[in-house]
Amino acid sequence: MATPLIVSEVAKAFTMHLRGGIRLPVVANVSFSIRAGECAVLGGPSGAGKSSILKMVYGNYGVDQGQIIVDHHGQLVDLATANPRTVLAVRRDTIGYVSQFLRTVPRVSALDVVAEPLVARGINRDEAHARASELLGRLNLPERLWSLPPATFSGGEQQRVNIARGFITDHPVLLLDEPTASLDATNREVVISLIEEKKQKGTALLGIFHDADVREAVADRIVDVTTFAAGKVAA
């Protein structure tokens, strides 16, 4: 399908029960879609709800209203109402995610962290390791670090592990939450070319980039999140 992800009239608010039930509207009426081979970038100032939108698409935040339709193995799934098992299947095969921070697990090596999404999809460990090594090499992570758990790595090193983990699979949809935030210029270039390759392969990308240079380089389209400001409707 040419449009693997459609977000339609999505609304989200947080209700803070511990603060007397205050309702904080985040976004409303979020509607956009992404075509295969396109990189759309969520634009807007901090607090506009960019990350919340990304997290709703990944199933990490609940959705109050609307639909998030994804093409999962040729079937249309609404992530806003899908059960946990379906969301997990969609994450394994269809939607990849590069988060801002790596959640490290004690004693698991960087190479295994990166290879894990492939292993989860039934690819044998040796091949998964080979592909993980290739990506970590491209991202200039020193080889002596590969066998170590990333908990003690620097911010930029952890982020590269995270990027490699997100880019290793061929998920048709890839979400990027500031993947270049703590990278130096050389590695930013690597990420830009990785994104370019994904586009060539027909991956639909949705990202947040605060770095204007990277945004210019990769964005085919800016989705302006301020137009989805929930305050406007809620007030």
């Binding site: 029960h17 511990l18 969301v87």
Partner: peptide
């Protein structure tokens, strides 16, 4: 009830919010 990361990152029930916070 739900996906573990969803419940922990976007807790909805008052009691879950209390636990997470």
């Amino acid at each position: 009830a739900g996906l573990t990361d969803r419940v922990l990152d976007d807790p909805r029930a008052p009691y879950t919010q209390l636990l997470v916070s």
